[in-house]
Simulated scan of single mutants.
Amino acid sequence: MKCETCREALSARLDGETEPTPPEALDRHVTGCAACRSWLARAERLHRTMLLRPAPGVPDLTAVILERTPAPPGEGWAARIALALVAVAQLGLAFAQLLGVEDHAAGHGTESLVGHLSHESSAWNLAVGVGLGWAAVRTKAASGQLPALTGFVALLLALSAGDLVTGQVTAGRVLTHGLVVLGLVLLFVVHRQHRRRNRPSPATTADTSGSFSTESGHETGEAPERPRQHRGFRRPASRHVA
């Protein structure tokens, strides 16, 4: 038996595995080979020092971790469904203006609501309804609609209040603008829920920045440099410059 084969079989015996050679032949070789006996003595000492010890017991922190972990935000289906209903109502108002039904229901003369101005109002109401419906489906789109719709609602309420005081419009006509006001409120709620759902976890951000700083410090031996924060408008750059 070669010493290499003997030591391989001895290693398997120490690990409790099946020996590749007959035990009797292995023992005869060890008895007659001083080098393999010395190797076996060193291997036994190493094996004793590397014996696995049971890990110390630790308390079960599952309940504490779950208690301190904030619950994930919901999908906000109530606000999205309400926004979709407002969008449908706004579309109905737009189609009523296009078909001439809403003009008679409001009780106004045809001089103020027909013609080009009536078409512009119908197109705007239709666009608002489509935008609100799209924001209900894709909540990310709510942020882009907020500035324009907020400015429109603010100016509309101011002008409608003045027209109502001077008697140029009835209260029933002003109440029809409540749909777009309600749509703006629901749009803001959907936008806030979308931001809350897609906000990165503080623990994940801290772990990422901490590991990056630690690795940089160990590799260079210098204090890690804080990443620069870009503020303001970023000019577009070509692919090569980027």
Results as ranks from 00 to 15, higher is better:
residue 133 G to Q: 11
residue 223 A to V: 13
residue 123 A to F: 12
residue 40 L to M: 01
residue 133 G to H: 02
residue 4 E to K: 08
residue 217 G to M: 11
residue 34 A to D: 06
residue 153 V to C: 02
residue 38 S to N: 06
residue 74 G to D: 09
residue 230 H to K: 14
residue 240 H to D: 13
residue 162 G to L: 01
residue 195 R to A: 08
residue 69 T to S: 05
residue 228 R to D: 13
residue 239 R to T: 02
residue 157 L to W: 10
residue 222 E to H: 13
residue 117 L to R: 12
residue 180 V to D: 01
residue 214 T to A: 15
residue 7 R to K: 09
residue 230 H to M: 13
residue 234 R to H: 02
residue 143 S to D: 03
residue 164 L to C: 11
residue 173 R to N: 05
residue 119 H to P: 03
residue 148 A to T: 13
residue 84 A to S: 11
residue 111 E to I: 09
residue 61 L to W: 10
residue 212 F to G: 07
residue 217 G to Y: 06
residue 11 S to G: 14
residue 34 A to L: 02
residue 186 L to C: 07
residue 58 V to G: 01
residue 17 E to H: 00
residue 175 L to E: 08
residue 64 V to E: 14
residue 132 L to N: 06
residue 194 H to D: 06
residue 193 Q to A: 11
residue 140 K to N: 07
residue 159 L to A: 07
residue 216 S to V: 07
residue 78 A to Q: 14
residue 54 P to E: 11
residue 73 P to L: 04
residue 204 T to V: 13
residue 32 G to V: 09
residue 110 T to K: 12
residue 40 L to R: 00
residue 45 R to S: 10
residue 71 A to G: 08
residue 64 V to Y: 06
residue 36 C to M: 01
residue 60 D to M: 09
residue 154 A to G: 04
residue 150 T to I: 03
residue 11 S to N: 15
residue 44 E to D: 14
residue 37 R to P: 01
residue 123 A to Q: 10
residue 13 R to V: 09
residue 82 A to F: 10
residue 202 P to D: 04
residue 1 M to V: 05
residue 48 R to N: 03
residue 27 D to K: 07
residue 162 G to S: 10
residue 220 T to K: 01
residue 79 A to F: 01
residue 107 G to D: 06
residue 14 L to H: 12
residue 230 H to D: 13
residue 52 L to Y: 00
residue 25 A to M: 09
residue 230 H to Q: 15
residue 109 G to E: 13
residue 165 V to L: 08
residue 41 A to H: 01
residue 179 L to K: 04
residue 30 V to W: 01
residue 102 E to C: 03
residue 73 P to C: 02
residue 148 A to K: 08
residue 161 A to L: 13
residue 35 A to C: 06
residue 153 V to Q: 04
residue 155 L to V: 05
residue 137 V to A: 14
residue 143 S to Y: 02
residue 221 G to Q: 09
residue 61 L to Y: 15
residue 120 E to Q: 14
residue 97 Q to T: 13
residue 52 L to W: 13
residue 227 P to H: 04
residue 204 T to L: 10
residue 228 R to V: 12
residue 130 V to I: 15
residue 217 G to E: 15
residue 73 P to T: 01
residue 199 R to F: 01
residue 29 H to Q: 11
residue 127 A to I: 06
